[in-house]
Design a protein around this nucleic acid. Sequence first.
DNA 1: AGGCCGGTGGACCATTGAGTCCAAATTTGT
DNA 2: ACAAATTTGGACTCAATGGTCCACCGGCCT
Lengths: 198, 198
Amino acid sequence: MNKGLTAKGRATRQRIVVATALLTREKGAAETTLDDVRAATATSKSQLFHYFPEGRSDILTAVAEYEAGQVLDVQQPFLGDLSTWESWQKWRQAVLDHYIELGQRCPLGSLTTELGKSSAEARAILTTLFTEWEEALFLGVRTLTSAEPEAARIRARSILAAIQGGVVMLQATGVTDYLTAALMTSTDPLRPTAEGTD
Amino acid sequence: MNKGLTAKGRATRQRIVVATALLTREKGAAETTLDDVRAATATSKSQLFHYFPEGRSDILTAVAEYEAGQVLDVQQPFLGDLSTWESWQKWRQAVLDHYIELGQRCPLGSLTTELGKSSAEARAILTTLFTEWEEALFLGVRTLTSAEPEAARIRARSILAAIQGGVVMLQATGVTDYLTAALMTSTDPLRPTAEGTD
DNA sequence: AGGCCGGTGGACCATTGAGTCCAAATTTGT
DNA sequence: ACAAATTTGGACTCAATGGTCCACCGGCCT
């Protein structure tokens, strides 16, 4: 008895979150209906509302949390230790590869858009994600360069924004050049013997 | 007789587009229903389908085109003549001001997301917009610096991506720092006596 | 003047999808 | 084993919304 949820209950809840995450990746959050979820998880409506009293938005929020975790995960182990230029390069490549593979889809994007309107939750999830992400980059910048904290902060934010922008444009146009350019340009100044454009 | 549309007809059509643009700015495209449009324009369902045979998506596409035009407009006259550093600064400020004023809303974003799934049109609109935008920036970079075309291209793309990313983060978190940082960092190298961070 | 074609009104239809409800099945604690 | 609580099934309600249809109006051209 743990907060009124047995082990079985928790398992079902988790199953719903994971399956819904898959669905939203495939069709986007807006196109994912409760019936889809029901079908994909072999559950019934009552279960959905049993585990997520607020209904759909509740489920989507849980999925968004889950996906936010994934975002940082796919950048590991590089993001966790950006202490060398090589590490930065590998990280950069990992990011690039990941988003190219993702292609048009943007799980978190579609989820938060769908929640968007009424959700302080969605906002909080993104803020947390970005903050952690920024912190990792900030640490890397500080370790690799001898920049002032202030400058390093700005650098870290620029890099983060560059990624987001590149991804937006990749998804909007299908072209990867923007992400590549943004990633290169924003990280190039970190290069030990900084000069060319890689 | 112009393609089967009289002056009155064209006026009504335009009225629908403009009014719908306003609606989508206020509530987002997803939350804008045909009945909303009907109410806002004092028209009837039949008119909506008369002028936009494909219905809702047709209207939204027209609005997206309209909004895409606006994006470049608000950057004028600076974007049109980025031949001096002063001009770049003013442009930068104009962009910043514009998006801060827009706040959480992102007309084109919500429109294309809503169309998204089935629309080569949406994609085309964005591609065109980004291409023009990039070209203006590219020209500016070339004029202001003596960079090789290749490098200038990358620079222009980076700046464009930086803006998109900064805007994404502004809208996701409500914080303007990312846009500011991204804009500064990506344009700083253009500065004649380049050095500090402004 | 008169007819044609575009413009307009609005009732009506069909579908979809979120959320409710209650009863049956199963599990857990004692 | 028994009772309480949890989990599950699934039919049902209800509102929203995109889209269809047809009749009427009204301006423009000859």
